[in-house]
Design a protein around this nucleic acid. Structure first.
Lengths: 342, 342
DNA sequence: TGTTGGCACTCGTGTTGTGTGACTGCTAAT
DNA sequence: ATTAGCAGTCACACAACACGAGTGCCAACA
């Protein structure tokens, strides 16, 4: 790892950085000549060419074809992100704008999620994804049973922290609202503050109806398959304009990744607050080839957390993306902690 | 209108139908020769050419270029849908499969919506959209106030029919749960079964906190901007493969239309149960150029209704699309009526 | 009057050839 | 170690061309 760093001389690092910057900006292969035009290198183009050949040898750059300029490889981007980027932060005026928007919004998770995805998409010109925070071990706060029709009951379950889940329940025999209230009261006193495990390991004498309700409650507490509605997306239109997605395969890959964002799971392993960068679908996420993702978990460690991030071409402005994702994740973490913690 | 019908001789109708069928199937301009190959026409290709020229004259067909076959115009599709399609129905085995899937699903609107979009997308090979049913005049069923933190209150509002809405409320001064219960009880007895108008036109002496809650309730009852989460989508990936969307503009148009589906409003004017066909963005919906939509309102007229439909290229299998949309809309209407009606 | 065979014409598509220019890679001089 | 210079490579743009699918039209025919 450390010897890898030492492999690159300062000049090689400068060249790699310039190539990444230029290619990210223009999507055109970068020639040796154009690099000396930046004034950052006081050597001739021939020297740059030699260095580029070395960098290619080492796997940081490639050639689309013989007479073309250089393009960073995934490994090149990786090195850039790890060693050449430094600690980037969003400009303070942008931070203020974003913070202000969040304070304007209504006190509601879905609003914040939507806002977060919009902000990320605008700030990075990539597609943004935000999943709802999931409570690690949900605890019952309050159960309500509402009769809607003769044989139908609406079950509303509020968790500690304020998440609300609902489900319909079909009755074999009709019950009136007072009977429902009775059952709800009983279950509320029995299970106030309980988690699923507690409920399951403390069997209680229950009527048939009550145990049916408890089954439904447990199901709502498990519920690890987040509904489609719990993922907010934004910026697909914009990122589809990037040149890597004009081809059918490129667009398909992107849309697929966005519709079934399994790669978000790679953020689940990480700590809340740390930003992960997946470049070109390194490792497992093959469907991300030619795409990069910048992800973070947000929320309160051990209590409730969700995932957010951006998805774009490997040719991504990593500095902006990382700082934006970090900032929005921190903001969302604060909101979750304000709302949910006790 | 009727003279328009009479304008087309039976043979011209046959030719138009064959052109539409062939073009829908292959996406290739249809030549006079290929039409006589179907055996549906006992005339020579020259005669077909003459008829095609007439149909083009009348605006039902076009030419991509001189030496190419014919392609239906929007007007041609329109005529096809109105006069040549007849009453189509989904094959009964497919209907059974779909019905079965709906009965398997849990008793929950969001599940049904997701299922409906999935079914529509699979059945039509187009993109499917389903919006949540909106209650026309929501009436309060039950209000619950739950203290989550010192200064934060979760307001859960259940409407008659079983829709649940929630919002956080920030307090100036802390209140404990019993005080909240008191307020909730008072408001529940005051406003049980009331709609927004009744609440607003019957002023009552309220504490500062209570009137703040009422304001929030009214806001939740208005809430005409459906959240992003209330639209279910499916099948984007598949429809993006259609040849009309391989170009960047085509894909962009489709994705735009899908992300901001204002065209769904055109279904709002129609009666529940009738299927609308919008071809090539006729009329207002310019952003739909080269796209067609098949839409229907579902739900219970005058009480609660939503919109569903499919979006695809103008070269769409209208028969399948119309029958699938109609069938799924009827199914969803039944579910809404079972669940929500009283 | 409607239908048909035949033929000229059009025009997109695919192929080939050619020139151009932007790069690189290498070598020899500094 | 650096550099100037030069030969070599290769995508790209452009033009010329042949091919063929398909039409439009006309004259003949039922």
């Amino acid at each position: 790892m450390t010897d890898q760093e030492l492999e690159l001389t300062p000049r090689q690092q400068t060249i790699l950085r310039l190539v990444v910057h230029s290619y990210v900006a223009t999507a055109q292969p970068v020639s040796s000549k154009s690099l000396i035009g930046t004034g950052m290198l006081n050597v001739s183009s021939a020297t740059v060419r030699n260095e580029m050949a070395v960098l290619e040898e080492m796997g940081y750059l490639t050639h689309p074809h013989t007479s073309a300029g250089r393009v960073p490889t995934d490994k090149g981007y990786r090195y850039f992100v790890e060693h050449l980027l430094g600690d980037v932060e969003l400009p303070s005026d942008e931070r203020n704008t974003i913070r202000h928007q969040f304070h304007q919004a209504k006190l509601e998770m879905s609003q914040w999620m939507q806002l977060a995805s919009a902000v990320l998409a605008r700030a990075t010109r990539s597609a943004a994804l935000v999943t709802a925070p999931r409570i690690e071990t949900p605890r019952v706060r309050q159960l309500t049973l509402i009769s809607t029709q003769a044989h139908l009951v609406l079950l509303v379950l509020v968790f500690q922290g304020g998440t609300v889940r609902q489900r319909m329940l079909m009755l074999r025999e009709p019950m009136d609202q007072t009977a429902l209230n009775q059952a709800a009261n009983r279950l509320n006193t029995l299970y106030a503050g309980a988690d699923a495990h507690t409920i399951q390991t403390h069997p209680v004498e229950l009527t048939e109806f009550e145990s049916e309700v408890v089954d439904l409650m447990l199901e709502l507490m498990r519920d690890d398959a987040p509904a489609q509605s719990e993922v907010y997306r934004d910026g697909l239109t914009e990122v589809l304009q990037e040149p890597e997605f004009v081809t059918q395969e490129g667009a398909r890959a992107l849309v697929n990744a966005l519709e079934q964002p399994e790669f978000l799971n790679s953020a689940l392993g990480a700590r809340v607050g740390t930003v992960q960068v997946v470049i070109g679908g390194e490792g497992r996420w093959r469907e991300l080839s030619a795409c990069s993702a910048v992800l973070a978990r947000y929320g309160v460690e051990g209590f409730a957390s969700g995932t957010l991030g951006v998805l774009g071409p490997t040719r991504m402005p990593y500095g902006r993306a990382i700082s934006a994702v970090r900032y929005v994740a921190d903001l969302m973490s604060d909101l979750v902690s304000d709302l949910y913690s006790r």
